[in-house]
């Protein structure tokens, strides 16, 4: 499993697709927001936390469709399925690799983008905390969606349609934590609820993903 993780990270670094593309997309979303709603700093600072969460969530979607598709096309997935690794483990490693290559750079970059949107000072810490707590769930859910659409033409669009509704609870609690943090309110139960969703998702999603993969491999 470590070998698989190492290979996926190596592939992401060599191909450059993971890190660069998602980050650039995130930046562009953040830059476009003031053009759409106006440059007023007080307005921007009110929506900053939500916009940053939404941008990170959409950027997470970008590299999902290649998560299993490449391994499926070149036959690696077939050989992996006959390997002594359980498919559940493969699913978990894929989610972890996606988080490390796509979500983690977004979490690191988010405070810098927060400056662009006049995020209030107390919000920076909570933004990072909420993203750290929430993005693993996004990766795990996304991996499930990627497995569902692995052999399909037009899989990318379908993937978004399936995954985005599943992102709703995570987005609600994550953005709530960031927003409350930015407005200097007490964080309240949103953070434990967010962490709960993430833990539950991480514990259960690999099994659903593996079930789907097993079925998809039958062709």
């Amino acid at each position: 499993m470590i070998a698989l993780l190492r290979r996926d990270l190596m592939l992401a670094v060599r191909a450059g697709g993971g890190f660069g593309l998602a980050l650039a997309f995130f930046l562009i979303v953040v830059v476009l927001v003031p053009f759409a709603i106006g440059p007023d700093p007080s307005l921007l600072s009110r929506v900053a936390a939500g916009v940053l969460w939404l941008g990170a969530l959409l950027a997470c979607l970008l590299s999902l469709d290649r998560l299993f598709a490449l391994d499926h096309e070149d036959g690696s997935l077939d050989l992996l399925a006959t390997a002594p690794l359980p498919l559940e483990g493969i699913a978990a490693v894929k989610a972890l690799a996606h988080w490390l290559t796509t979500a983690l750079p977004l979490v690191v970059a988010a405070p810098a983008f927060g400056i662009l949107l006049s995020l209030p000072a107390p919000g920076f810490g909570w933004l990072v905390v909420s993203l750290l707590a929430g993005t693993p769930a996004l990766s795990a859910i996304g991996t499930f969606g990627a497995a569902l659409t692995v052999g399909l033409r037009r899989g990318g669009l379908l993937l978004s349609l399936i995954v985005l509704p599943l992102y709703v609870p995570t987005l609600i609690f994550g953005a709530e934590v960031a927003r409350r943090g930015a407005e200097g309110l007490a964080i309240g139960p949103a953070l434990p609820l967010l962490a709960g969703i993430t833990c539950g998702t991480l514990a259960l999603m690999p099994f659903a993903t593996a079930a789907v993969l097993r079925r998809a491999l039958r062709g």
Partner: peptide
């Protein structure tokens, strides 16, 4: 099992492919 695609990652070296 090897399908007709050969499961080789072009951006890895021969050694990295095999070690994986």
């Amino acid at each position: 099992y090897a399908s007709h695609a050969d499961g080789i990652k072009p951006s890895l070296t021969v050694r990295e492919n095999l070690i994986f």
